[in-house]
Design a protein around this nucleic acid. Structure first.
Length: 217
DNA sequence: CAGTCGCA
DNA sequence: TGTG
């Protein structure tokens, strides 16, 4: 990886807001697809219902999760891993909608990561009070590929830290339609979501939906 | 044995 | 709220 997003980005992506080398917020990037994205989320949740996973330490996560794509992220007493089927039903995860794939690819390319081919999409549902404490996405085998994260519904404060837990994270407000991409030198950055403030979104109601695209292998 | 997507 |  020899590129630097601080140098390579802003000209062709006017709404790009660099967070760190290898990390950028694309403001409103997903907005034109808001309705079809939310429709697809409903459809996925009808096949693989939202559920609260248990951490290896035995704690119930406040975020409700489901997945689509070839593989889905799961957590239980045995640890974190990617599974080809929903452990609740034994059925394969719902297919990744074509629109999800093209949006994730376009966002990655805009951020300087060409040819992103995610094989997993984790869907997170936040309601007021829900949080996700600082963590790294390190269960993927292919760390060359970036993470692409799409925000829908209520706004949230995104915590974006460094490669060590001790570095104080930036606090960035993410609104409906914003997309964050991080990879390269930022691929293993610690990140999280502060407790969600109450509110009411015209399309999503009292919820924030986050789509996180990953290439796991 | 390392790490801890949560907690004290 | 930062750190183990």
């Amino acid at each position: 990886m020899t590129f630097d997003l601080f140098d390579s980005l802003p000209q062709d992506a006017p709404h790009a807001e660099p967070l760190a080398p290898g990390a950028v917020v694309l403001r409103g990037f997903a907005r034109e697809h808001e309705q079809s994205l939310l429709d697809a989320v409903r459809d996925i949740a009808a096949q693989a219902p939202w559920r609260h996973l248990i951490t290896p330490g035995g704690q119930r996560m406040s975020v409700a999760m489901t997945n689509c794509g070839q593989l889905g992220w799961v957590s239980d007493a045995r640890g974190y891993r990617y599974e080809p089927a929903d452990p609740e039903s034994g059925k394969p995860w719902p297919a990744m909608p074509a629109g999800f794939l093209s949006l994730a690819r376009a966002a990655a390319a805009t951020a300087g990561f060409e040819d992103f081919r995610p094989d997993a999409c984790l869907l997170n549902r936040y309601t007021p009070g829900t949080r996700l404490s600082l963590h790294q996405d390190r269960d993927e085998l292919d760390l060359r590929a970036p993470i692409v994260s799409v925000s829908l519904g209520l706004p949230a404060v995104f915590l974006f830290g460094g490669l060590s837990r001790a570095e104080r994270p930036l606090r960035v407000r993410l609104a409906h339609g914003d997309v964050v991409v991080w990879g390269g030198p930022a691929r293993l950055a610690f990140h999280g979501i502060a407790p969600l403030a109450d509110g009411d979104h015209a399309l999503a109601g009292r919820e924030r939906i986050n789509l996180t695209f990953r290439k796991t292998r």
